[in-house]
Every structure is written in C-alpha cells, then in structure tokens.
Design a protein around this nucleic acid. Structure first.
Lengths: 236, 236
DNA sequence: CGATTGGTTGAGCCCATTCAACGAATGTGG
DNA sequence: CCACATTCGTTGAATGGGCTCAACCAATCG
C-alpha cells in the first residue's frame, strides 16, 4: 500500500471545524469530500510547491507544520507564515495562477489537496461553502495585517511575546498544550518572520528565560507566565 | 440635487477594468450595476467606517484617496494601506462581520458601495464575478505579503524607494503621471505604513533629493531617476 | 570520526529613533 | 483683516536597540 497518497475524508477529520469544512452540514461535507483530491505526505524539509510553480490546488494542512516564504531577487527571504493543522496554504497563488512563495514542511507533514477549479465549481453549488471561503481569505488578510502591525510598530521583545502568544493560542484551539510548546522552526525562521536576526531571537528568548517568563531548552519552550508576556506587549 | 449620493454606473466608469467589474461582459456589468448601492462622498479627513462598525458593504474607491489603519489598544496605529481609484476597501471585515480598521479619506473622495450580502448572491449567479473576486482577495493577500517583506527585511531607504515606485506604478496604471507624484498623505502616514518615524521619512526624502533621485517640495515629488531608486532596493 | 547545522553569547558599531528647535502653511475667531 | 493656534515638514544632536562579526558548544548526520 502506498501511504504517500491517501483519500481525504473530511467527514471523519478531527479538525474539521478548523478547516475548510467548518460550518458545513454533513451532506455538504460529503459533497466536498467527493471533490477532494488525495492526501499527500510532505517530508521534513521537502517543499509542497515552489515560487513560480503553476497554481493548481489549495492545500489544507492535515498534520505537521509548514512555513511559507517569499524570496527577493537579491536572495533575501521573508517567512510569511507558519501553517498548522486545519490551515490553508496556497491562497496567495489565486491572484496570479502562479505560486509566489515557497511552502516547505518543517516536520513530516500531511496535506489534503483540492483542485481550485473544482473548488470554485463547488462554491457555485454551495453558497455556504463559498461564503466560508470568502471568510477564510479575509481572515488571511487580517492575519497579515496583524503581522504588519507587529513588524511596523513593535520592538523585538514585543514581537517575540506576540509570536509565542499566537502559537500558544493556536495550539490550544487544537486541544494541545498552550504552555508546553515545541517549536518546529529554527531561530532563523522565527527571526525572518518577525523581522529580526536569529541572534536577536536567541538573546530575547534567553532574556525571557532570565525573567522567568519562559523555560527555554532549545526548541522546547514552556510558558511560565503568559500574563507577564502579554503585559510586555504595549508597554513603553 | 443631492451630490452626496449618486447612482453608481460601472458600465460607464473609466476605471472599470481596474475595479470589480474587470473582465466581466457588458451584460454582466449591467447586472452588477443593478445591485450596486449609491455612490458616496467622503470628505477629506472623514471616515468611511471605523473599527468596530458592523460590516455591511464593500467600497470601491471611485475618485480620491483613502488610508486604512488599525489601532492597537495602547494607542499605537499602523497604516495598513493607501487605496486609490479602483481599489476595494473593507475586505478585512468579511472575516468577522465587523470592521477591524478605520478607513479615512486623505482627500475629498467618492466611493461606490456594494452590500456584501447582495454581492455574494451575485457571485452565485455569475461564476465569473466570483472568480474575479477570489482573485481580488488573493491579490490583497499578496500585496500585504509584499509589505511584510518590506517591513521585515528592508532598510529605511529601500522601503521608501519601494513605496515611491509602487505609487508611481499605480498612478501610471491610471493614466496619470508616474513621475510627478502628489502625495495625499502626511509624512507620519508614510512612516506608519513603512514602519518608520516621520522624521526618518523626511530625512530620507531629503537625502534622495540631494542624490538627485527626486525633487521634493512638500507633498509634490518628482521622480528624476526611477532606475536609481530601483537599484537602491536590494543593495547592501 | 569529521562535517554540518542549529543555537548561545560577547563586543563594538551603526542606523533609525528620540528629543528638540524652528519655519511654513493653513485655518479660526475676534 | 490680523493675531493666534494648529498642523505639517525639516533639520540637528545625542541615544540606544538591534545588527554585525566572531567565537564557541551541542546535536545530528554521513
């Protein structure tokens, strides 16, 4: 049996309510299921797609963790997001029918593929699905605005505190611990996302450790004082 | 006659191809027209909507210039975009049915309103319109990613050069001069958008002036050396 | 085992900020 | 109409937060 391609089954998916099928009736989910392509494995370090690839499908992260990053001509890269279970990857490619970022797995991951042409047809059949999808796109716009606020007007400490809080919330939504984080990305990835150098990320994590806000052991981060972290944001 | 509300007529609009009706047939545009609400005037300094307002409509800028900005609890604001003719405002509110930013007119402006409920119905009738709208949302995601790249990995000079280049392109698309810019926003607005202080914006404009890349007289900026500006981006 | 990747920490530097003064333009009320 | 306040923009001097450069350690991999 080839485990690299398994039929997606939204109906039985535990994170259904965090993903595209959110808010759909059982019948609607069945219809969606029929239009889903196969589930795919992306090995750690492997890429789901690369900049310039023709756009064919959206992907819902099933398990694992991805990052997306855009490359500037001169080699500079900017991580634009980290996607976990239930989150959709590839939304930016709708605009140009070409992927404008790289999507790379940070750990062994699985994604559910759905052909966008098919998805648009489905949207015509199910106004409910289309409505939800509009919200999904809008939510991504809002998320990015949050990052703009972070990059444009927060200091390094605040950025990191906000980043950790955001991760904690998303883990909690997924019934995982919101205080015992295992970061799947490198310090450099975090830095790129937050507009900081990796050394700065490392230093500030150490500082948070000293302040007894965190317990940091490499990629294992335990949040000791979420309130203290939150207070950090917006003081000064 | 009340000039504050005029019927929108996409069919005869000069910027039709830059706006929602882009790519639609004449018949489809007529149908869209029937569903458009009235055209509204927003006076300079006035706001189209404010954070927290319930979401009812999208707005297409007809003439003028708007800015959108989000407010952080502690009073910090981040300008998230400047919108000119043909561009759509309010996309972020779809996600939560509430506006999460303020939209303020930088000069006397006119906007075309379309009720989002109606628009979604129209999208069900016209797959073409829905397809285009998906692209519009995706394009906004891409635009914001560009800003993230700018904020996350460019130095002040590069940010300003990229900003001016972007404005020039958008003016050119609208058959206006791409070298004789009249900036409708303050230095503070620019700074907020670019993650810089207003003094820094002012200083760098002066520096560009000294380098003979620009001619700056207050809000009138003439681009003397677009190539030079572009070269500035990504050197360092 | 050496090579590579990822992470931490230190010292010095520099770019953007902060604080401040000043000028120009615009608007307002007497 | 002028006096005054306010907003907007420019420029200078000093400061500092995050960067650069560098050394070092731990873990992983071939």
């Amino acid at each position: 049996m080839d485990f690299s391609e398994l039929k997606s089954v939204c109906g039985g998916c535990t994170i259904r309510e965090l993903c595209l099928p959110a808010g759909l009736s059982d019948q609607e989910v069945m219809l969606l299921d029929q239009h889903m392509s196969h589930r795919q494995v992306v090995k750690k370090g492997g890429s789901l797609y690369r900049t310039g690839d023709p756009f064919k499908s959206l992907y819902a992260v099933s398990t694992g963790f991805l990052k997306t990053s855009i490359l500037h001509e001169d080699g500079r890269a900017q991580v634009t997001g980290f996607q976990m279970a239930g989150e959709i990857v590839g939304l930016d490619a709708i605009s140009t029918d070409q992927h404008i970022c790289d999507a790379v797995a940070l750990v062994d991951s699985m994604v559910c593929e759905i052909t966008f042409d098919r998805f648009e047809e489905l949207g015509q059949l199910m106004s409910n699905l289309q409505h939800r999808f509009n919200k999904t796109l809008s939510r991504e716009i809002v998320r990015e605005q949050g990052v703009m606020l972070l990059l444009g007007s927060m200091r390094a400490e605040e950025r990191l505190a906000a980043f950790l809080g955001n991760l904690a919330n998303r883990f909690t939504e997924r019934k995982q611990s919101g205080s015992e984080l295992v970061l799947p990305m490198t310090r450099e990835d975090i830095g790129s996302y937050l507009g900081l150098k990796l050394e700065t990320v490392s230093r500030i994590l150490s500082r948070f450790h000293d302040l007894k806000l965190l317990e940091v052991r490499g990629r294992n981060v335990r949040i000791l004082d979420q309130i203290g972290l939150n207070q950090l944001i917006g003081e000064s």
